[in-house]
Design a protein around this nucleic acid. Sequence first.
DNA 1: ATAAAGCGTTGATAAATATCAACGCTTTTT
DNA 2: AAAAAGCGTTGATATTTATCAACGCTTTAT
Lengths: 191, 191
Amino acid sequence: MHKNLFNYINQHTDSVLSKEEELLIEAAFKFKKMRKKQYFLQEGEVCKHVGFIIKGAMRQYSVDEKGIEHIVHLYVENYWAGDRESSIMLTPSQFNIDAWEDTEMLIITRAEMLSLMEKIPSLVKMIQKMDERNAIASLRRLSSTISNTAEKRYEEFAENHPQFLQRFPQHIIASYLGITKETLSRIRKKI
Amino acid sequence: MHKNLFNYINQHTDSVLSKEEELLIEAAFKFKKMRKKQYFLQEGEVCKHVGFIIKGAMRQYSVDEKGIEHIVHLYVENYWAGDRESSIMLTPSQFNIDAWEDTEMLIITRAEMLSLMEKIPSLVKMIQKMDERNAIASLRRLSSTISNTAEKRYEEFAENHPQFLQRFPQHIIASYLGITKETLSRIRKKI
DNA sequence: ATAAAGCGTTGATAAATATCAACGCTTTTT
DNA sequence: AAAAAGCGTTGATATTTATCAACGCTTTAT
């Protein structure tokens, strides 16, 4: 089960984890099963854990005054779920994270992760690489959001994230794109 | 002149740079003066350098088919300017970066920076911290963009970035917020 | 087996925002 | 000193997107 995580780490570094390192990681990450709709993080809580998804799908979102959900992240296998701002600054999160499908994850606290990183150089490299990828993806998404119409945003999304299209219903995709489900329905009809 | 950079690095780590480290940094970063409107990076080029701003103001933006500029980043003193995607992947940039005011920077190539990081642990820590801050800021901006009306976005921006309001004209702020200058003008009149 | 919830669609209408054109003012360039 | 460019504003209008309500279909819960 931790195999997926080892693979992920190896793929995000130039080296390969040693047997000792694997054992350290196995000891540090706890297995957690999440039922569909179960909260991994709830608005107002401080985010204690970050979770690596072995199987399943999750989402991260805020809820506005009108009760409307605004989805900022979608997660499937091999994604990391958590609210970095909350877990670094130890402030209450503005976001919810919950399971969209029954999900299996490997979770770890930030403190444990930092201590692991001191023992396992690969983990530091992995975080570096993840940060780079995250920075690149964030800028692309932001740029698309401020520059493009809803239709073009959807087209780019469909091209870049076909796996999400199959995994999440349309109203979730619409929220992720910052438009209503009705608008997305009409866009799809047009294309 | 490199003092600003040393201060920045020290403020973003727990330790203080040694004299030897300072000398290494001084040798690696080159001073560069940019005139107002001068390109630091032009669409289609591979981004070779990242620059730390000592004095001045810059912007990063894409230009769409209609010739409209969409500003993704504004930079002032103590900001780092560059296109990470292009410089990591060695792909042509989709963005332009130019000086909005006459600007003084300290620039370094990615290769030199990586080699410096091997000699100066503080630099690695600094990058880590910058990545964290960047990830947090990006998510906040994205969340605001997909969740809020133009008016609320402007209010949040004015609250979080008062220094930009004084430094850049309104049509630049409007572009950064993903709205037209006319809309921003009307929003400000209303408030 | 039945009821309820979830999902996508459609129509009618309202609200937000963009577009186009023009103007006055200030700053910069010639 | 004159001309040009940059900036913010305003009005009229068009376009995009949201809102509200209803419907049929499928999946889930009771």
